[in-house]
Amino acid sequence: MPMDAEILLNVNNVEVVYNRTIQVLRGLSLRVPKGEIVALLGSNGAGKSTTLKAVSNLLELEDGAVTAGHIEFDGTDLASLTPHGLVRRGLFHVMEGRRIFEDLTVEENLTAATFSLSGRGLPITPFDLVYSYFPRLYERRKGLAGYLSGGEQQMLAIGRALISKPKLILLDEPSLGLSPKLVEEIFTIIARINREQGVSMLLVEQNAAVAFSVASYGYIMEMGKVVIDGPVERLVKDQDVQEFYLGLGGGGAHKSYRDVKHYKRRKRWLS
């Protein structure tokens, strides 16, 4: 675990159960230090999105619950906070699949995000901040968000996070369904936002290579718990990681080698 810097998010031995029967997280622990990008990787169904929903308190909406362990954000235990209360403390979750409001305009989507500032005594973030990172959104600001391209929708999803002046952004698969060129563009901006705004990020990805290009520390999870973790410099040299997550392996006959192909596959919710 990263030890040096101040810890912003501390997930400790968390278990999550859906519908009171399906256990998905089995004692998962991770930490995000202030100001850093931490990557959380794993194959389909490992429980990455569930981890993020446990942190942002959105599990309840899907009849899921944290049954053991605890989660601390900025020194406060999260169990007692409402999802919107949490956002208003500076923890913003960019959900899987972007979840933009399609029948609202780009500007209205940003307006919706201004509710994250309620009760914090902060002035409303000028939308220009978002447009300075994503000039394309400015051109489309009066148009319905549903007509944006996939890449632009991802930009809008990140733009909404910026509006909330967050301390921590949870990013769930920002590369999903985007062309390699767009992925590169978006990750460049993610790195810039982290640097310039001092926002910490917990980044969930299937695309390990691109996640490692911006993250300083990485966790790899399988079946609801962390199996490998370490600073990115070390992970990229790790034999297993290279083979299974970076797709660099020498073609060994390892039984889960085909997992690598998952990263190329489009996700089920897209169809």
């Binding site: 956002v87 979840r99 209205e108 307006t111 994250s116």
Partner: peptide, 22 residues
């Protein structure tokens, strides 16, 4: 602004929560 909150909630409750909408 309230109208935006209502339409956002109508469209996607989970996403509305994640915007900080009560």
């Amino acid at each position: 602004r309230g109208g935006v909150a209502l339409r956002a909630t109508a469209r996607d409750q989970g996403a509305a929560y994640s915007m900080g909408i009560d």
